[in-house]
Computed example of a mutant assay.
Amino acid sequence: MTNAYNPKHYKRIKTAKSVAFQIFALLVGLIIVFPIIYALCISFMPSDQILSMPPRLIPETITLEHYKKALESTMLGRYMLNSLILAGVSSVIRVITASMAAFAFSFFEFRGKSFLFAFVMGTIMIPGDVVLITNYQTVANLGLVNTYLGMMIVFMVSAMNIFIMRQNFLTFSKDVKEASEVDGCSNFRFFATILLPLNKPVLTTVFISAFISTWNTYLWPMLVTNDDAMRTVQVGVTMLNFPEGTVYGPIMAASILVLLPVAVMFIIFRRQIVGGLMGGAVKG
């Protein structure tokens, strides 16, 4: 005897699984974001409440003294400007280099194309720390230590961004390019006026992901700068030292200020980031 198919029963099971998955995802999200929430609360908490027992999450009174102290103790404003220049300019250049390389790999046919693309993709497997010393020697020999160009030069090209854009460009109909050639449209004109405007989501994705990763970088800017005025914000936060020892309030306040631009950008453009990454992985 077989059980009769009951649509309502299977619908309830499907709904229960969906609710359980959403609850699980919500719990994981809260666990991930809890340190940020805790840092935000400490940044507004008076010093005598930070290390109180039992620990407090919600401050009894709100103070902005920690933010004032963080801004006065270091050149945090200058550090944020340096990071903005580093992340903004290098991300724009990365979009340009990645889109041009992806255009060549997608629409041109030339000898060694497959080998060259495989070679570019192979660089992804090389850890950045392996070439750290050689990159520093190159930058030092070029006299680019303590310069914006020296900090951003290693972030101007990304094999992963080339791959994402190439995969997206492959979904673009080549008939449009052939039709544009018949009308006398040059390769550069097709690239700049047709291809890029129609692929704004992936361009936005590459720019935002590059901006966030470059904004959060620490090791390379610290290595190629020894002038305090050229430090980036990630390096500057570690320089929050006080005579009375470790003061958690100003450190958390500075961390929140550093996190704020990236968090706002990610919240505003999160759909473009996910959509662009998914779109780039559709076609191989």
Rank of each mutant, 00 (worst) to 15 (best):
S186N: 09
R189F: 04
I208L: 14
Y218S: 14
T147Q: 10
F190N: 03
N161A: 01
P221K: 01
R231A: 03
L203C: 07
P197D: 01
V176E: 00
N241C: 10
R166I: 05
F172D: 07
M165H: 00
V202S: 08
K200I: 08
L149G: 08
V176H: 00
S209C: 09
L203E: 11
F172Q: 12
L195F: 07
I194P: 04
V235H: 11
N141D: 15
P221W: 02
I153K: 07
F155C: 02
N199K: 11
L170F: 09
P201Q: 13
N161S: 02
C185P: 02
N161I: 00
V154P: 10
P221S: 01
A192M: 06
I194E: 06
S173D: 13
I212P: 00
L170V: 14
L170A: 12
D183T: 03
V202R: 06
F191R: 06
N199I: 14
N146W: 05
I162Q: 04
A179C: 03
Q137N: 15
D228P: 00
D228N: 03
T171K: 13
N146V: 05
R231Q: 07
F155G: 02
R166C: 08
M160T: 06
R166H: 10
Q167S: 15
N226F: 12
N135K: 10
L198S: 14
F163G: 03
E178D: 13
R231F: 03
L144M: 12
L195T: 11
T193D: 00
D228S: 01
M230C: 00
V139E: 08
G143K: 05
T138M: 05
P201H: 13
N241A: 14
M160A: 07
T138E: 00
N199S: 14
N141C: 07
F163T: 02
Y148T: 14
D183K: 08
V154Q: 11
V176D: 00
V237R: 07
M152R: 02
F188M: 15
I208D: 13
N168G: 12
E178F: 09
N241Y: 10
V235T: 14
P197N: 01
A192C: 08
N226E: 09
L196N: 03
T214C: 03
V176Q: 02
T217Q: 12
R189L: 06
Y136A: 02
S173N: 08
K200T: 04
F163H: 09
F155N: 04
S186W: 06
P243W: 11
P221F: 01
Q234Y: 05
G236A: 03
C185G: 06
I212R: 03
D175G: 11
I162H: 07
E178R: 13
L195A: 10
F190G: 05
V154C: 10
T147I: 08
T205E: 10
T147C: 03
D228I: 03
L203T: 01
